[in-house]
Design a binder for these strands. Structure first.
Lengths: 233, 233
DNA sequence: TAATTTGATATAGTATGCAGTTATAGAAAG
DNA sequence: CTTTCTATAACTGCATACTATATCAAATTA
């Protein structure tokens, strides 16, 4: 079969698709392909084609595409097909404004709800972050940053908030490494994390929220800077 | 046909289903049925049954149910079917916390982005709200309150924010009339609206956010009060 | 030549069939 | 009378078949 080349070259079902509904496996597979840029913005998602690539019928593909639309990763034009969403700067601005508000909420709630156990975890994550900045590997830095914030989100103990923030994160996934300064001056980042960490540990809601806000603001300014360079696409 | 009795008695396709994909019509229809309590929490949604009632095949029903799941109106158990979600107090608390943060954002952004035209609209809406409180009809009061807040949301000019807040509103739809005091003392509500209106008009972001916050807090305390009475369901 | 119509093709929308799984009711055993 | 097992009915998951619609290109007309 000629399908396997595309399958191995591009997307594939995730390893552990046992006992998982096909639609979910397809969803995760497509989501990953979009987030990693394997399927590019503006590209069309045709049901039969994807079905051939992933080895399923149209039905699970359809359902997966509907879910992707909910996360704003694809845009469906009724009657015509689905395309990978093309985010405008204005769209991104919308997302970042909401993220800012919700990351503040996350930090604020965490202040009041974090357990001793979680404090220990957060301490670990904070140190891991500081270590990663020394490596100057922006992938590692970004990942440890995300981990740190996810722990705070977990400590906030608000499932709805978690779901929404996860969805928003997808929207800026492509830019996740770009808010790391290339020149290796991470003082601001470290300071913010330190501030945030200490505020959450000590329950200082006001400071925690302020740190979260400036953290997002910094991210956004870096992303926006990068968008200037692209200037089109 | 025996289907029409159920159709007219319970749910039905919305009037303007012309040129709209069936799945969307079904989605809106089911959504309405759930929000208005025509289908009750815990009740099972079977594809063939709904298909018979609404006069479609299973496919559009399936897709509509998937969308409803995204809005947390139904819960899908893989392999077994879909049921109307049963919200716990904790779930509601999560929703209200997020709503509070986002209504604040909405009010804050509106301060900076409202146009003269929108100011006039908002003025109208504010007056309509005050008038409605004199009527002591809690349905009318709640509706004019929602309208007032929707105008602010529109003035905030953030589509993402609008979408998310709409989704959250569905989660508390059942309780939308319950935050209106029964005893006819609406001073607090009117004062909050006046404060919020004037803050948005004059661009006083801090006051606007504070008003929005206390408005949601009031809503939540009334809803929670009411939940005590039910004490079970 | 430009615009408009028309027809062919591709693709989404919808319906239905089949297989496997889950829920249910009834019988048998305790 | 209760519990457990089993047979059956009902339902979802996935696939496929059919239908409606959109898109694009060629042809026809102004």
């Amino acid at each position: 079969m000629g399908d396997n080349n595309l399958l191995t070259a591009g997307m594939s079902m995730t390893e552990e698709q046992q006992a998982m509904p096909l639609r979910d496996a397809v969803f995760m597979s497509l989501r990953k392909a979009i987030l990693t840029g394997k399927i590019k913005p503006g590209e069309r998602l045709t049901e039969v084609k994807l079905g051939k690539i992933l080895g399923t019928s149209r039905t699970p593909i359809r359902e997966a595409i509907r879910l992707l639309e909910q996360e704003n990763l694809v845009t469906i034009i009724p009657g015509s097909g689905a395309r990978v969403s093309r985010m405008t700067v204005s769209d991104l601005q919308d997302v970042m404004e909401v993220r800012s508000a919700l990351e503040q909420l996350s930090a604020g709630l965490a202040c009041e709800r974090i357990t001793e156990e979680e404090k220990a975890e957060l301490y670990e994550a904070y140190n891991a972050f500081v270590r990663s900045t020394q490596s100057e590997d922006s992938i590692m830095i970004a990942d440890s940053d995300v981990h740190f914030h996810n722990l705070i989100l977990k400590a906030a103990k608000n499932q709805k908030l978690g779901k929404i923030l996860d969805g928003l994160a997808d929207n800026i996934y492509r830019y996740r490494y770009e808010f790391i300064r290339e020149d290796g001056h991470y003082e601001d980042l470290i300071r913010e994390h330190k501030e945030l960490y200490e505020a959450v540990i000590s329950g200082n809601r006001e400071v925690a929220e302020k740190s979260a806000r400036s953290h997002i603001a910094r991210q956004w300014s870096y992303i926006r800077e990068h968008l200037q360079e692209d200037a089109g696409e």
